[in-house]
Design a binder for these strands. Structure first.
Lengths: 196, 196
DNA sequence: TATTTACCATAACATATGTTATTTACCAAG
DNA sequence: CTTGGTAAATAACATATGTTATGGTAAATA
């Protein structure tokens, strides 16, 4: 048996480079092949169809997103998740669009789990964070996360659409902090939580 | 000279119906022709290229969006703009995606003027609204609009992605009101506006 | 060494799309 | 009525893409 000249890994990396640089619409079997200096056959021998390839690329993009979100930019877990999400949207425009803005080739409107679920999971996991929010009732805490998530996603898409990438880390951080504080104080103010 | 059997208007309406029902990716000269029961020729005789067609459709979609945003849902102009924007995103999924989420066929990341500019324009135009916000300094007012806009766009994209359209008018209105109030109170609280 | 088999390149098939050339049919002007 | 021009249909050209068939080459195996 012959060893593969073009490995599955190599193929995925070429495709991933393409989507990072030029977006999902620039990914085709021929484009990948050209980038590797091969024909399209190795792709089909390692990955059955473009649909499978798309799934792989989604996973890879999500992994990179996760790296952005897991860095410790501040001492606040939720803020880190939000900040990482927005910076990912700014610095990896095509990947963010691929994951959250553009439709899959099959025209389902179907966004991934993304930030929102991370928010809710992390919130439960991090006790220090939870303690700091003790003044809010449970419903208020959940609402705080919901509002923060909506704001974060809005900021991310806006930052993503800004082709000059003129949002600095500091600006993004300030926007997120301020919004979070506003929601938090509003929750305190209302006492009853966000749902009345 | 013969009168046209297929008018420019008829063509645009067929294309618009297509994009509303099945999205921009479903719009092609042949699909339009099929919908009209004609060949593709009338399209080219009235509209030179698909690129021109896309521009026309953007205009039409924006007009419909404007209708949503100009209704008087409440006594607050800004809230009306925001609410109309979100409801448009919920009820016209394909049009909203076409205008703000998907890339143009030519791969520029370029979102339209949209809500944000409307916000800033309307804000200046409506004096009653301005009066109500007098307690905020000018910089704080601008910031309030910015934060509100970010939240609104975030909510719109979230609502748009929800294929069950499970967001009721009341929920959307409440989210927008609460967020706006939170930002407003935060601005008061800070005194100096949002930019410190 | 001869053979078989996996891998890959080439070419082709199938489809979808924008666009244009050619032909047909019809209406209006002379 | 003839003729000319316009609009529409048909067909074709050009490109892009997913996918598959065919054949060669080189390595592993008998």
């Amino acid at each position: 048996m012959q060893p593969s000249v073009y490995s599955r890994k190599e193929i995925l990396e070429a495709a991933f480079a393409l989507i990072r640089e030029r977006g999902w619409s620039a990914v085709s079997t021929r484009a990948i092949a050209k980038k590797m200096g091969s024909s399209t056959m190795p792709i089909y021998s390692h990955i059955k169809s473009v649909e499978k390839l798309e799934r792989e690329l989604r996973t890879m993009a999500s992994e990179l997103q996760k790296e952005y979100q897991q860095k410790s930019y501040t001492e606040h877990v939720l803020l880190n998740l939000a900040f990482g999400y927005v910076v990912f949207a700014r610095d990896e425009k095509h990947l963010f669009r691929f994951l959250y803005l553009e439709s899959p080739r099959t025209m389902n409107i179907n966004h991934g789990p993304s930030l929102r679920e991370s928010f809710f999971r992390q919130f439960g996991a991090d006790s220090a964070e939870a303690e700091a929010l003790n003044e809010l009732k449970a419903s208020g805490q959940e609402a705080l996360i919901q509002y923060t998530w909506i704001f974060t996603h809005g900021l991310a898409t806006q930052v993503n659409a800004d082709s000059e990438s003129s949002f600095s880390d500091e600006q993004i951080m300030r926007l997120l902090r301020n919004a979070g504080e506003a929601f938090y104080l509003w929750g305190i103010h209302k006492g009853e939580g966000f749902n009345d």
